[in-house]
Simulated scan of single mutants.
Amino acid sequence: MTDGEVSGAPRSGTRASRTRRAVWITLAVVVLVTAGIVTALLLRPAVPAASEPTPSPSRSAGPTPPPTPTPTPTPTGFPANSTVYDLAALSQIDVFAVNAGLPIDDDPFGALTGEAATSIGDGAPVFGDPVGQPVGFLPREYTFGGTTAPIIERQEHWVKVLLVGRQSVPSQGNPAQVMGWLRTKDVAIAPLDALVEVDLTARTIDIVRAGVPERIATDFASGTSDTPTPLGRTYVMTTLVEPSFGYTRGYPLVYLAVQSPTLDGFGGADVAVTAFHYHDERSGSISNGCLRVDPAAIEALAALPAGTPVIVRP
């Protein structure tokens, strides 16, 4: 029995060896296959995710157009003038001036800018045409005022303003309200806060501030048919009290830049200036062109600064 056990051991061992060998071969195959799969996955090219496709050059919208160049702004208004002028060689523009080079206001009932210009230094050259030569100069200060001029047009290099003086006396030409051009480099510009509106038909006078009118007169006297009150836009030249004018009863006179359309002069003077003033008789068309008002109205008008625009409507 012992011999039988010994002789049987090799046969049993052989079968076990073959079994172990088969297991190891199977494991080796599995390892090799697994390694091959892993290697294949590692060597496979990356594919972009479907939700984030890589843009294709063939599907491009085309080349990017060149940027549109920014146009150079076109200068507005008249060109700058940097010429230095000798003011002593120019005639002064004041209430007594009769200067054929001063143009007549081309839009008597037009708008204003709400600003006024005053000369810097001794004065500013005045131009009838900004591309021409000066026709006179506006002094910074003058006894009878008129040097603070309301602006009716403003450009980068120029302002168009109303002015005192006349182009001609009535007997020889057009005496209406004059204007002129000043270089912005020669003036200081400041805002105006009021405007006076006169209606000859309605017989009303309003002081307008910020678009809101304040009625200061509901009746007043104005010019006759032979000596009418000038129409259109003008401005306060100066305000003063003249004791020798007894009819004013000591109230101030508010002189305007415009003069009579029919009188070359008045009261022995070479001027015929229009004014607001007090008078005992102050109703109807009875004056030489001035606007006669009551005490409250003249006090309100006298409080306005020089340069305040005044528009007289028919």
Rank of each mutant, 00 (worst) to 15 (best):
G13H: 13
S91R: 14
Q133W: 07
E115W: 00
T14Y: 11
S91I: 04
E5F: 09
D219Q: 13
V312D: 05
V310T: 02
P295S: 08
G121L: 03
A269F: 11
G246M: 08
P309V: 01
V187G: 00
T39A: 05
T239N: 03
Y85C: 01
Y251R: 01
S225W: 07
G4R: 12
S12G: 09
A89C: 08
G13P: 07
R154F: 04
G145F: 05
Y247K: 07
P45V: 07
P71L: 05
A300E: 12
F276R: 01
R59P: 07
W158F: 06
G250E: 10
E52A: 14
E156Q: 14
I152H: 01
T224P: 00
V212M: 10
S12P: 05
S56W: 08
T74I: 13
E242P: 00
P130C: 09
G232H: 06
E5W: 09
G246V: 11
A111T: 15
L43Y: 09
A46K: 13
T218P: 06
A149E: 03
A116V: 04
I25T: 15
S12T: 14
G223A: 03
A28P: 01
P69M: 11
E281D: 15
V271T: 15
T113W: 00
D270S: 15
W24H: 15
S260T: 14
E214R: 10
D106E: 08
A28Y: 05
G289E: 07
R166L: 09
P53F: 08
P314C: 12
G36S: 06
V98A: 04
R21V: 09
R20G: 13
P55S: 10
F109R: 02
T54L: 15
M237W: 03
S171A: 09
D3P: 10
V6F: 10
L163A: 02
A149I: 02
R203G: 03
T64F: 03
L200P: 08
G223I: 06
A61N: 12
S168M: 08
V273S: 03
P309S: 03
V178E: 01
T204S: 14
P79D: 04
S260F: 03
Y235L: 02
T227V: 09
I189F: 02
W24G: 15
R292P: 00
G268E: 10
R21Y: 08
L192G: 00
Y142Q: 12
